[in-house]
């Protein structure tokens, strides 16, 4: 580029050069546009391939017999009855613990906690908990729940391990959805003479249920798919029976004996079948995987829809 002597005097070819540079940049942009789209589709395609693979290998295997049979040494007779019942019961424990504690912690940190070092510490602690590998929750459950508290290798131990694991998800979701409520809503409630808890109970919680529910669903979907912490507490055993029923036909009608029952769960059962040598059990693994995928994907889909609707319904 010529700048000798002045500014206005630019040779004609200078504009040509700018034109060329513009074209080059435009071409690079077009290329990246294509590459980006292609890679996005390929990445999403992997999810599709994964699903198709499970459908192809496992769909045939899913029938009434599969859902109502216990594990067996013969692949064709094995089923997931104890696994899905185990998963269901685990989720009851997990939800029963993680939701109240998580929501309470979220409310406390967002609405009550003073801004001080301790609160900072709790925040860093939650950020770290969210990133702690799931297997470490299993080790904690093994040392603490199984041996220290003597809950044994039970549904209670497993459910508590999973509850600790998803606690940060519930806390973060609660806080984020409380945070979207503008401060003047709180002020309006306080101006009418509400106590802090009344403001929370009458206003903030109802307005944030959409966000909290989204977080809870995502948390449960995560818990359903987890296997590492359950393996660590020793859940990978041959379970050919169901835990005691929680509902009795005679007084006191409710029983909590099932909490202390040994268990298996869907991801554990799948892991068991995947890691067997030979190909006999592969269709079983695929079938269990397909069931797991359908559960987690539909829960995530529901969470996405719920989030969209919550965003659309309430406009501040």
């Amino acid at each position: 580029m010529s700048c000798a002597g002045g500014f206005i005097v630019l040779p004609e070819h200078f504009f040509q050069r700018q034109k060329k540079q513009a074209h080059q940049r435009r071409a690079i942009d077009r290329w990246f546009q294509r590459i980006g789209l292609l890679l996005t589709l390929m990445t999403l395609g992997i999810l599709g391939i994964l699903l198709l693979n499970l459908v192809g290998n496992g769909l045939m295997r899913i029938d009434w017999q599969f859902l109502t049979s216990f594990p067996s040494r013969r692949a064709g007779e094995a089923g997931v009855l104890s696994a899905w019942v185990g998963t269901l019961l685990l989720m009851m424990v997990t939800a029963g613990v993680a939701i109240p504690f998580g929501v309470a912690a979220g409310i406390y940190l967002e609405e009550y906690a003073p801004k001080n070092k301790w609160t900072d510490f709790v925040e860093i602690n939650i950020a770290n908990l969210a990133g702690v590998p799931s297997i470490l929750y299993g080790l904690m459950a093994l040392g603490l729940f199984v041996y220290q508290f003597r809950f044994g290798q039970s549904i209670l131990s497993g459910g508590l391990a999973l509850a600790c694991l998803v606690l940060p998800i519930v806390i973060v979701a609660t806080r984020e959805s409380l945070r979207t409520i503008p401060a003047n809503i709180r002020e309006a409630a306080f101006a009418l003479g509400a106590t802090r808890w009344q403001a929370v109970w009458h206003h903030l919680l109802p307005y944030s249920t959409g966000g909290i529910a989204t977080g809870v669903i995502l948390a449960m979907s995560r818990a359903i798919g987890e296997s590492a912490p359950l393996i660590t507490i020793g859940a990978l055993t041959f379970i050919a029976f169901l835990p005691p029923t929680p509902v009795l036909s005679h007084p006191p009608f409710l029983s909590f004996e099932w909490l202390f029952s040994p268990f298996t769960a869907l991801p554990i059962q799948m892991f068991n079948w995947v890691s067997r040598p030979g190909e006999d059990f592969q269709p079983n693994a695929a079938a269990a995987g397909l069931i797991l995928m359908l559960i987690t994907l539909s829960m995530n889909g529901a969470a996405i829809l719920l989030r969209k609707r919550a965003q659309r319904n309430i406009k501040w």
Binding site: L50, R222, G225, E226, S227, F271, L292, M293, T296, N300
Partner: peptide, 21 residues
């Protein structure tokens, strides 16, 4: 949201996919 589904897949299913596919 579809990408986020990719991280919601149970890891045992990914393990299956890695080993057998």
């Amino acid at each position: 949201p579809m990408l986020e589904l990719l991280s919601a897949v149970p890891t045992v299913v990914y393990g299956y996919f890695a080993l057998l596919t």
